[in-house]
Design a protein around this nucleic acid. Structure first.
Lengths: 271, 271
DNA sequence: TGTGTTGTGATTAAGTGAGTGAATGAGCTT
DNA sequence: AAGCTCATTCACTCACTTAATCACAACACA
């Protein structure tokens, strides 16, 4: 039972935020008392007494700790909110700075676009997959077939993208895993065809199978995206393929054509 | 002379945001092109080519890069805004999490675990796909489900691989697109379960759709290969995915579990 | 069949941080 | 003032991570 204590949790977070182990431990120890000496910190944390000074000095330079130069020295942690704000702002500034710097970089233009009709890409992360999903929807010309396994996938921006596509004359067909989601989607997109049945194969029949299909997107019968999630936080993974003769695209197109999903085979109406 | 270039600034920022040197350099190099191979990245950055793969894999898991499993592999960076948002949110979440943890010391123990089985490969060419198919069959431990759309796919060496698997105790299930092929296979593999029905979705219902599914292979419910052909000479293309939670594998596994194909779902000792 | 390329793995070198303890020095005790 | 305790600094070792290089198998190309 390695149950993480609150202390350990906080220490880990602080380390993920760039602090060293001794720094993180010292800060947490300090946070629980109004003030303390190096000895106090060393006893509360696992930090060797002789190294508390280094750690605290760094913390001080980050603005997380105040030092009282007495003998012995006294140290005091800033308030939790203050500390969190300091760290948040620090990284916020960095990301914004990164954004500008990257944007300023001139893109090397004229890359030879390679074989677009037979590619399969692997993606990870809810955010990345969401962005790709919306991008694909907004690139749709004729038809969007979207199946959602989870109501959290139906975000506002996705709804916007679907509405915009609808305005362009794109046929929107949405499948929902549960009735509740179907209702939500239908009211948000009155003109779209929304269904809930025919999706039994989405659910897992294997007790050992924790993998859920979160999204399934078919755009213009030529591009497909499938994402799965193991249930853990932000563990969504997706593959997305392009090209009419792409095997991945082909199989899903076929499945829909034979009535597995309650939509007409879009391919058979092709001129 | 040695002023900091935009690249260097971006690299430094990325490292401050927790990326390793190679990861940062690879990402910046990728950001300037629409897509690139390991070689491209290595040439544009200072990253040894052989280390690009590691770096990019980490970037993919963070959602900053998409991977195209072709040969050579291609990599693509997400947009600058997406990347910045991902990193910003990551640290924002951490600081808020830290705030709560420090305020109320409640243990929330969840240790992220990463699995590596998230690959999708694209293959082309009859020969390559044949070899891969046989390789996968010979690696099977429990079960091989193979569907053949064309009698030319049932080669002698494939037959050997299937027989060898059968000797090992692997369950062999073969689906044939036409009765003629079914007969051939059944006589070659008397102990295998061979069927021809239930494959309507294999055939094209679209007159314009010249793409035929040539093979569909599912091994041990964790690895799948789908190949298609446009009918022209040696135009076979396949994708093959590995990993229980791979979206491609998942969807086919599900389909079989719900009886689309006339085999029992081997994975579910359903209650 | 060679030849160059791609991708993986192993190995070595360099750097960083954790952990330990000696050296310094400042007060305090006697 | 000498001896003592404690606070503080500094220097060093060890372990681990990361950078860098190499060797090699698989594959594509010609």
């Amino acid at each position: 039972m390695n149950e993480l204590t609150g202390d350990d949790q906080a220490i880990e977070l602080l380390q993920q935020l760039g602090l060293k182990e001794y720094e993180a431990k010292s800060f947490v120890a300090l946070s629980r008392v109004s003030a303390g000496t190096a000895k106090d910190i060393s006893e509360r944390s696992e930090v060797p007494r002789t190294r508390v000074y280094d750690a605290v000095r760094v913390l001080e330079s980050k603005g997380l700790v105040e030092i009282h130069h007495s003998n012995p020295q006294q140290f005091r942690a800033v308030s939790v909110d203050e500390a969190a704000d300091i760290l948040r702002d620090e990284y916020h500034d960095r990301t914004e700075s990164l954004r500008e710097t990257l944007k300023a970089l001139e893109p090397i233009t004229t890359e030879p676009e390679r074989d677009v009709t037979h590619e399969v890409w692997a993606l990870s992360g809810n955010r990345t997959i969401t962005a790709r999903t919306e991008q694909l929807v907004s690139e749709a010309d004729d038809e969007v077939v979207l199946i959602l396994g989870d109501e959290t996938m139906f975000t506002e921006s996705l709804q916007d993208a679907l509405e915009a596509a609808e305005q362009r004359g794109v046929t929107i067909i949405v499948g929902a895993a549960i009735e509740e989601l179907r209702t939500t989607v239908q009211s948000a997109l009155p003109d779209a065809e929304v269904f809930v049945s025919g999706l039994s194969w989405l659910a897992s029949s294997d007790p050992d199978d924790q993998t859920d299909i979160e999204r399934l997107l078919l755009v213009d019968r030529t591009t497909i995206l499938i994402s799965t999630s193991s249930g853990r936080e932000d563990d969504e993974k997706a593959i997305f393929g392009r090209g009419f003769d792409n095997g991945l695209v082909t199989i899903v197109r076929r499945l829909m054509a034979t009535g597995l999903l309650p939509v007409d085979d879009p391919g058979s109406e092709r001129p």
